[in-house]
Amino acid sequence: MATIRDVAKKAGVAISTVSLAMNGTGPVSAETLKRVQDASAAIGYTPNGLAQSLKRGHSKLVGLVLGDIGNPFFSRLLRALETALSETDHMVIVAETAAHPERERNTIEQLRRHRVGGILMAPMMNDPAFALFLRRLDIPVVLIDQNVEGADRDFVSSDNALATMILTEYLRRLGHRRIAFIGGDPVQGTAALRLKGFRETMAAAGLPVDPALEVVADFSGEKAYDHVVRLMSRPQRPTALIAASNLMALGALQAIHDLGLDCPGDVSLTGVDDVPWGNVVRPRLTIAAQPVEELAQRAATFLTERMKLRGCAGLPPRTHIAIPKLVLGTSCAPPRGEGG
Rank of each mutant, 00 (worst) to 15 (best):
P123M: 11
E104I: 09
H114L: 12
P140F: 15
G118C: 05
I166T: 08
Q110I: 05
M125D: 14
A163S: 14
H114R: 15
I144K: 04
N147K: 13
P128Y: 05
V141C: 12
A122F: 03
P123G: 06
L132P: 00
R172P: 00
E149S: 07
P101C: 02
E104S: 03
M125A: 15
N147A: 11
R173E: 06
A122T: 07
E169M: 04
R115P: 05
E149L: 11
G117S: 03
P123I: 01
T107P: 12
V141M: 11
V148Y: 10
L120C: 10
M125S: 15
L120M: 10
V156R: 02
F130Q: 11
H100M: 09
L174E: 12
E109N: 15
S157K: 07
I108A: 08
N106C: 09
G117D: 04
F133Q: 10
E149H: 11
D152I: 00
R113S: 14
A95M: 13
D127P: 09
A151K: 05
L171C: 02
V142F: 06
L111E: 10
F130P: 11
A161R: 02
T107N: 14
A151W: 15
I166Q: 07
L111N: 00
V156S: 05
T164Y: 09
R177E: 11
R172K: 04
L167P: 02
D145K: 08
S157I: 00
A98T: 04
T168E: 11
P140Q: 12
H176S: 02
A122Q: 00
R136S: 13
I144F: 06
A151H: 05
L162K: 15
A95K: 10
D138A: 14
V148Q: 00
E169R: 14
T107D: 12
L143Q: 07
G150L: 10
A129C: 12
M165K: 14
I108D: 04
D152A: 09
I108G: 08
R177I: 01
G175N: 07
H176V: 00
L143T: 06
R177Y: 04
D159P: 06
F155D: 00
L171R: 00
R153E: 02
F155G: 01
A95C: 15
A163F: 03
V142A: 05
M124F: 03
N147F: 12
L111I: 00
F155Q: 00
N106H: 14
N126W: 01
V156Q: 04
S157L: 07
R173D: 03
D127M: 06
M121I: 09
N126E: 09
L137N: 08
N106L: 14
D154E: 04
E169Y: 03
V142G: 02
F133H: 10
